[in-house]
């Protein structure tokens, strides 16, 4: 028979039932827990669309065996702001025109939050390096860089 386990996701304990061994955290978040904000674009850690925080560390959820994340604190894009509100990074993405198709956006927003939590005023090159694992095919990144610097400037104020 299959096993059952619990995951801690966005501050809540969530049961996972009847899982298959090989399921990634990405799959479990999206298909079992209804948290579809974390996106699936490559399943090999080469695009960053599925970025989440595990114990405050930014990782690709497609490369996390879901059951191995028991007892760890998982945060997804859904946790960034309460309903009806936006985080500063989310708002900046909208205002800066950093969103086109939007598929890479949740992952990028997770990566940018992580960057700015660690480096409040990153240089241009630091921004580029920090989001170099998040592919975007629509924007050419220019408006994303702008969004990051807008938030950095706002937070300095």
């Amino acid at each position: 028979m299959s096993e059952h386990y619990q995951l801690r996701v966005n501050g809540e304990s969530r049961p996972v039932n009847d899982a298959w061994l090989g399921e990634s955290l990405l799959y479990v978040l999206r298909e079992r827990l209804g948290l579809a904000g974390t996106k699936n674009a490559c399943e090999q850690g080469e695009c960053g669309s599925c970025s989440v925080l595990i114990d405050d560390v930014l990782v690709c959820s497609c490369l996390v065996l879901a059951a191995s994340a028991m007892d760890r604190e998982i945060s997804t894009v859904e946790s960034l702001a309460p309903d009806g509100d936006l985080s500063d990074v989310q708002r900046a993405f909208v205002e800066a025109g950093a969103v086109q198709c939007g598929f890479c956006t949740p992952g990028l927003i997770m990566a940018v939050h992580d960057l700015l939590d660690q480096k409040p005023s990153p240089s241009d090159l630091e921004v580029r390096e920090a989001i170099s694992g998040n592919l975007c095919r629509c924007t050419g990144y220019v408006r994303i860089f702008d969004a990051v610097q807008r938030v950095a400037a706002e937070r300095e104020e």
Binding site: L21, S24, G45, C62, L63, V64, A67, S68
Partner: peptide
């Protein structure tokens, strides 16, 4: 299973079918 960055690519692309981890 260590960091998973190779292991899980193989699982996701079905080059590895772990029975226990």
């Amino acid at each position: 299973l260590a960091g998973g960055t190779d292991f899980m690519v193989e699982v996701n692309y079905r080059h590895r079918s772990p029975k226990a981890v």
